[in-house]
Nucleic acid binder design. Structure first.
Length: 561
RNA sequence: UGUCCGAUGGUGUAAUGGUAGCACUGCAGAUUUUGGUUCUGCCUGUCAAGGUUCGAAUCCUUGUCGGACAACCA
């Protein structure tokens, strides 16, 4: 049955290719992918798509997936990022094949191959400065012209390249170029640079190397050395593919060949995704670091309260194709709500408290109210919370002069207090500022939940917290960082002009039911009727801090828009 | 005035020459001691024009629109 279900499910274009390759016994019908981040920044939700794809294909086809750091540029890369990337991949729930790998593991082999290319007359040392080489490359619509050093003798090239390796020249003095075709309509084939001189220590190879390979020269061969079969990358590398194949053609002679396949990167509405823009947000202090809960980074989403499972489901839902796409950020929110709805314990929390006094409830009396922990999970059981004469309810749940469809509390109106009694608003008191200070109600002792004696139909049920036992907390309400659907998509305006000034709202005087006094960072809850919240890493006993992951669907708020 | 890639409801994604489906969103209703969840129903789509074919989202031609490419970045 499972097999027939699998057959029915349609394939994305990558799965189609893979299944075709398996059928043809290409590369011994192996499937081996890799996730190849450059360790120069934090992973974001776009990387998550790639991670889920690469690891997902390996899982689905009983293959393997490597984690390989593309560390060919020592001036940009740091060990710190290696660690954060590993942590993020693991948190997402994936296990890479063996040890993590590095392109720098292959520097020796890459060098030998470069020498081989020189000997074949397919590579040469160019002495020209960067600007000149750049000029000679032409433009997409005009062919380039050949470097005067292009026809150097093999021996000279060999000697020069070795001298480059030795460190005889300053940065930028020379480069090694592949001899391909300066007239190619593909810019990347116009004698691309293979090696540049970089007198910089590498985070793994230290001072061993003075020259470092370029991405194009390193990536395909790294894939080859690792036995990668399907090298999945984003669309912008499409034009690099002929070069990817060119190096492999010149260098190797086996039947096994890795194949580069490109897919469209993820774009999310109301979000920026480029490393540069993300860095700008951090550097300018718009957010508080890479793991700010408003950031689309894995670390940010995690701190925000997203579950790994919800991100994986999201990645499944958005699919994979080659056309440019912008996913509605609402789909991400839907995915996390769906997961949290199933797993998050329900608790009572009042974010904007106003005192409610039940005038006819005996002073000093307390009773225990039993509340279901999670209606979606009967086995999660129930708990008791105290109820007494003085409670807090949400300010929004009371209106002096309510509109017709307002199902909550108002003068002379009745509501049920969740799990407890039906109360009727008798009067209210304002403070000097004209804000509601206290609401006075009466209760009907026979309406207690579960007793069944009396169950009047009331339209609304409110959450509440017992005043004396409530614990205080700070709650951080997050909203989208940008007000514009495509903040980075404007030619004339910078994304930063569309920043949402209300992306963070801090509630300082929240009242929570007492069981929340003892929670740990990343613990997740549904604050009944409000949304999903998780404990922030800033939280301490006695100084609780919660982040709003996402609000509940709110048809009432929608009606009032 | 180059090369390559792409175009299916509002947003994504299927249909691989044979009934345009699914998800999200939106709308309407049912259930509900969360205005949550769940359930039901509905709206909305093949970029255009030709051609091939009994039959085209799918194949061909032309056009239109969008994207990528000119780091010693990845």
């Amino acid at each position: 049955m499972e097999a027939s279900e699998k057959e029915k499910k349609s394939l994305n274009f990558i799965e189609t290719i893979i299944e075709e390759d398996i059928k043809n016994h290409k590369n011994d019908a192996r499937v081996h992918t890799r996730f190849p981040p450059e360790p120069n920044g934090y992973l974001h939700i776009g990387h998550a798509k790639s991670i889920c794809l690469n690891f997902g294909m390996a899982e689905k086809y009983n293959g393997k997936c490597n984690l390989r750091f593309d560390d060919t540029n020592p001036t940009k890369e740091e060990m710190e990022y290696v660690d954060s990337i590993k942590a993020d991949v693991q948190w997402l729930g994936f296990e890479w094949n063996g040890q993590e790998l590095f392109a720098s593991d292959y520097f020796d082999q890459l060098y030998d191959w470069a020498v081989m290319l020189i000997k074949k007359g397919k590579a040469y040392v160019d002495d020209q400065p960067q600007e000149l080489i750049s000029q000679q490359r032409g433009t997409p619509t005009r062919p380039g012209i050949e470097s005067p050093f292009r026809s150097r003798s093999i021996d000279e090239n060999l000697a020069l390249f070795e001298a480059m390796k030795r460190g005889d020249f300053p940065n930028g003095a020379k480069v090694l170029r592949a001899k391909v075709d300066m007239a190619s309509p593909n810019m990347h084939m116009r004698d691309p640079v293979m090696y540049r001189i970089l007198n910089a220590p590498h985070h793994r190879t230290g001072d061993t190397w003075k020259i470092y390979p370029m991405y194009d020269y390193a990536h395909g061969q790294s894939d080859y050395l690792e036995g990668i079969t399907h090298s999945l990358c984003t669309l912008e590398f499409e034009v690099h593919r002929p070069l990817y194949d060119w190096f492999l053609d010149e260098l190797i002679d086996t039947e096994y060949r890795p194949r580069q396949i490109e897919f469209a990167r993820l774009n999310l509405s109301y979000t920026v995704m480029s490393k540069r823009k993300l860095l700008e947000l951090v550097k300018n202090g718009v957010v508080n670091g890479w793991d700010d809960p408003r950031m689309p980074t894995i670390a940010g989403l995690r701190r925000r309260g997203y579950t790994a499972a919800s991100i994986r489901t999201f990645a499944d839902r958005i699919g994979v194709a080659k056309r440019d796409n912008t996913i509605d950020v609402g789909l991400l929110e839907f995915s996390v709500r769906e997961d949290l709805n199933n797993i998050a314990p329900r608790v009572m929390a009042v974010l904007d408290p106003v005192k409610l006094i039940i005038s006819n409830y005996p002073e000093g009396q307390t009773e225990q109210i039993e509340l279901i922990n999670n209606p979606e999970q009967p086995e999660a059981g129930s708990r008791n919370i105290p109820f007494s004469r003085e409670l807090y309810i949400e300010r929004d749940d009371f209106m002096i002069d309510p509109p017709k469809k307002f199902f909550r509390l108002a003068p002379d109106k009745e509501v049920r207090l969740k799990g407890a009694y039906v109360v009727r608003c008798e009067s209210y008191e304002l403070d000097d500022a004209g804000e509601v200070k206290t609401i006075y109600c009466s209760y009907d002792a026979e309406t207690r939940s579960g007793t069944g004696t009396k169950n009047p139909k009331v339209k609304g049920t409110l959450h509440w917290v017992e005043a004396n036992t409530a614990v205080d907390a700070e709650v951080r309400l997050y909203d989208r960082l940008f007000n514009d659907e495509d903040p980075a998509g404007h030619k004339e305006k910078d994304a930063m002009e569309f920043l949402n000034p209300d992306s963070l709202q801090i509630k300082t005087y929240c009242k929570l039911e007492r069981m929340l006094a003892d929670v740990q960072p990343e613990d997740k809850f549904q604050f009944q009727r409000i949304g999903y919240f998780c404990v922030d890493k800033d939280s301490k006993a006695g100084q609780l801090v919660f982040n709003r992951t996402v609000s509940l669907r709110d048809t009432w708020a929608k009606m009032n828009q």
